[in-house]
């Protein structure tokens, strides 16, 4: 069945017609062209499709598009500022070698962002726990955890850079 939903996507309110059997991943990647949302396993195991919905990191491949109605969605495309200035987490991943092939990176960064938004003083254990649902086959994770830790070590003012206008959901 086709129906119309309303959501905040990367700070913009959008209305979009969807089918019941679309996943959020399909809507974002195939219909809205946000190719930063990756499909890895399609089964909720690898975390490449991670996006932030209402502040929580979720796997968009096992999330129905219809369930995002009225919610606030953030993908990797919405993280950098409009002028291209990278978010501190993105900058840190680049500077600390947290990226190799890059396929897991959007999911890693968004999982890390959801964690730091909730707990800006996250410990190494917190970071490992928050990234437990994201697989990386290149780096061995060490540089990824270091990239997130580097952001934690910076002043909290730096972390909470508001890079987008968050509108009201619902």
């Amino acid at each position: 069945m086709s129906r119309e939903i309303k959501l905040m996507l990367n700070g913009n309110q959008i209305f979009v017609a969807i089918e019941d059997n679309w996943t959020l991943l399909y809507l974002l990647r195939e219909k809205l062209g946000l190719t930063g949302v990756k499909e890895g396993c399609g089964q909720g195991e690898c975390g490449a499709c991670t996006v932030i919905v209402d502040g929580l990191a979720v796997n968009s491949c096992i999330y129905f598009a219809v369930e995002v109605d009225g919610k606030d969605v953030l993908t990797i495309e919405g993280l950098a500022a409009a002028d291209g200035t990278l978010h501190p987490l993105q900058k840190s991943f680049v500077e600390n070698g947290g990226i190799q092939c890059g396929f897991c990176t959007p999911g890693m960064i968004l999982s890390a962002k959801a964690l730091l938004d909730e707990n800006p003083q996250a410990t190494e254990a917190d970071i490992k726990q928050a990234l437990a649902g994201n697989l990386c086959r290149c780096t061995g994770y060490v540089q990824i955890v270091e990239s997130v830790e580097a952001v934690v070590d910076k002043s909290s003012e730096d972390i909470n850079v508001v890079v987008r206008e968050t509108g009201e959901s619902g």
């Binding site: 909720g44 975390g47 991670t50 919905v53 929580l56 990191a57 979720v58 796997n59 096992i62 999330y63 999982s111 726990q129 928050a130 437990a132 649902g133 994201n134």
Partner: peptide, 10 residues
């Protein structure tokens, strides 16, 4: 069970 990204929602 799973990971935080699964425990949150699905």
């Amino acid at each position: 069970v799973g990971a935080p990204s699964i425990q949150h929602f699905s």
